[in-house]
Simulated scan of single mutants.
Amino acid sequence: MTNIYFPDEEISRNDIFFVCYMIERVARRLHQRNRYVVNQIGRKSLEHLVSVANVLHAENPLAVEKDWIETYQLSEGTFHVDRVDPELVTKIPGPLQMGKVYERLIHDTKKPGESEVDGIIRVYNHEICDVIDNYNCSAYYEPSYVIARAYYEGGF
């Protein structure tokens, strides 16, 4: 995919990583699932965000969160990633770690001719995300090729 503002510039994996990281941050702040954030933002706005990611990553993440919440009219939910069994989970993965997990999954499952934005929408709307975001299991911790295989097979 090329940058919508600078057609000579390709979207990088770091741009996708940043957007995935921010999706995770916003979803956690609002107690929503990641797919809610992705679907509320929508394809056209995701194209914009991916295209300006190389600039936004220099901004304060809290300010970017606030801007996304206001701009895309995102609302509070009831999903809490931190509600885990303390017997099973001693440390919840952070937004950076989960942003990387999702960036890799988008890259590893990219279809021929598919844009990165289409990959973001496809992956975040797949049922495998419910398993990856359940920190009582170790799905998020698996190597990226295992997560990609689980994506294709419909489960771990």
Rank of each mutant, 00 (worst) to 15 (best):
A27V: 03
R28C: 08
R29F: 14
L30A: 02
H31V: 01
H31L: 13
Q32D: 06
R33N: 14
N34D: 13
N34Y: 03
N34Q: 13
R35I: 12
Y36G: 01
V37I: 15
V37W: 06
V37P: 13
V37E: 08
V37F: 01
V37R: 04
V38L: 04
N39C: 03
Q40S: 12
I41Y: 12
G42S: 09
R43D: 14
R43Y: 15
R43N: 12
R43C: 00
K44P: 07
K44V: 09
S45C: 08
S45G: 03
L46D: 12
L46E: 07
E47V: 00
E47H: 09
L49P: 11
L49V: 03
L49G: 05
L49M: 02
L49A: 01
V50D: 08
V50C: 06
V50T: 09
V50N: 04
S51C: 03
S51P: 09
S51K: 05
V52P: 14
A53E: 05
V55Y: 05
L56P: 06
L56W: 00
H57E: 07
A58T: 00
A58Y: 12
N60R: 08
N60W: 03
P61R: 02
P61M: 01
P61T: 02
A63L: 13
A63P: 00
V64A: 09
E65I: 07
K66E: 15
D67I: 02
I69M: 10
I69P: 08
E70Y: 03
E70G: 13
E70L: 10
E70M: 04
Q73N: 12
Q73Y: 01
Q73I: 02
L74W: 06
S75W: 03
S75Q: 05
S75Y: 03
S75V: 07
S75D: 11
E76M: 07
E76W: 00
E76P: 08
E76R: 07
E76V: 10
G77K: 04
T78V: 14
T78Q: 12
F79K: 08
F79E: 12
F79C: 07
V81H: 11
V81F: 14
V81T: 12
V81I: 15
D82Y: 12
R83N: 11
R83I: 01
V84S: 11
D85M: 10
P86H: 02
P86S: 06
E87G: 06
L88E: 15
L88Y: 11
L88K: 15
L88C: 11
V89C: 04
T90K: 12
T90Q: 05
K91F: 13
K91A: 10
I92R: 09
P93H: 01
G94K: 10
P95R: 00
P95Q: 01
L96I: 08
Q97C: 00
Q97T: 06
Q97S: 09
Q97H: 05
M98V: 02
M98E: 11
K100F: 07
K100M: 10
V101S: 11
V101P: 10
Y102C: 14
E103W: 00
E103Y: 00
R104G: 14
R104D: 15
R104Q: 15
R104I: 03
I106T: 02
T109Q: 09
T109S: 13
P112R: 01
P112E: 04
P112W: 00
G113T: 03
G113F: 06
